[in-house]
Design a protein around this nucleic acid. Structure first.
Length: 296
DNA sequence: ACCTCGTCCTGGTTGC
DNA sequence: TGCAACCAGGACGAGG
């Protein structure tokens, strides 16, 4: 599930491949990708655009064009953006990069999960894959992107302006579990299920604590925990559970560093107690019942 | 305003 | 062994 660290890794790796390039040809194979807009129309509008910047906001990849228009890409659960150098199209190498081994030593001729391909003016391709088709491409007219994002996204957790005080403001008065609160993109942009659990473990806070009841010290610890977990994820190029790949096709390494996520029954690194799995905020949630107490 | 839950979607896993 | 049920979860809208 691409969260902030995965999306930031994709952005950083794609940036030098995309900035300055013109979109020579755009093919969109999935009508859901550009909903509610017609993919053929979107593809035609994208063709000829020149990329001036590749940014990230929350979990969105923000592709900025010279025209002022912006393409917002959201990978949701299983979206991938892969860069394929000129001359390697449709080769076995691409399937290898995309992690499509079928275990028999042979590689599929067609990739059924390829939803879109952008040919750049240097002959390379940006391939968009998405098994579950939750991902979205939204082409936005100049001036409309800031209001669109402002309506949906809160603060960037790694920005200097995101202080413990700001986090406290976002959590104040809320009775929802703290995990639900930090997953709320309108409060905090970019934290998903994995890094929420990892951040709460670092802060030694129970995921079901009411968000508004955290003490000042706990808010400070959570602030540090969120930023440390996200930075660790970026440093490891994200976490690959199944689908996530960098644009070069590599797996992330952060899954090897998880303190709690997916580690049911394994000893807590801090206290040795077995990690437990519960359901919180409607999501699978892992935590240490000994050092993340519900009542402090 | 806040909060919870259902929906979208596919493929891997579980259970009978 | 076969096959249906279940599970994973980011964003969003419905309903309380």
């Amino acid at each position: 599930m691409p969260e902030l660290p995965e999306v930031e890794t994709v952005r950083a790796q794609l940036e030098p491949k995309l900035v300055g390039r013109r979109l020579a040809d755009v093919q969109i194979a999935d009508h859901r990708l550009t909903r509610p807009h017609d993919p053929t129309v979107v593809a035609a509008e994208l063709t000829g655009e020149r990329v001036t910047a590749l940014d990230r906001r929350g979990k969105y990849v923000v592709v900025r064009f010279k025209s002022g228009r912006v393409l917002l890409i959201h990978l949701r659960m299983t979206g991938q953006l892969l860069h394929v150098p000129a001359g390697l199209h449709d080769s076995a190498g691409l399937h290898d990069l995309a992690g499509l081994h079928d275990g028999s030593g042979s590689l599929p001729v067609d990739d059924p999960h390829r939803r879109a391909v952008v040919r750049l003016d240097d002959g390379s391709d940006v391939v968009y894959r998405d098994v579950r088709r939750f991902g979205t491409w939204l082409l936005i007219e100049p001036g409309e992107v800031d209001p669109y994002l402002a309506q949906r996204l809160g603060r960037e957790p790694l920005a200097p302006a995101f202080t413990a005080r700001r986090l406290g403001e976002a959590l104040a008065g809320r009775k929802a579990p703290v995990k639900a609160a930090i997953l709320d993109q309108r409060r905090l942009a970019g934290v998903g299920n994995i890094y929420a659990d990892e951040a709460l473990w670092r802060a030694q806070i129970h995921p079901q604590r009411p968000a508004g009841e955290l003490t000042e010290a706990e808010i400070a610890a959570l602030h540090r925990g969120i930023r440390a977990a996200l930075r660790a994820g970026i440093a490891r190029q994200g976490a690959t559970l199944r689908d996530y790949r960098t644009p070069g096709g590599a797996s992330g390494q952060m899954q090897h560093e998880f303190k709690v996520y997916g580690r049911t029954g394994e000893p807590c690194e801090r206290c040795g107690s077995p990690i437990e799995k519960i359901r919180a905020a409607g999501r699978g949630t892992w935590y240490c019942p000994a050092c993340q107490k519900l009542s402090s």
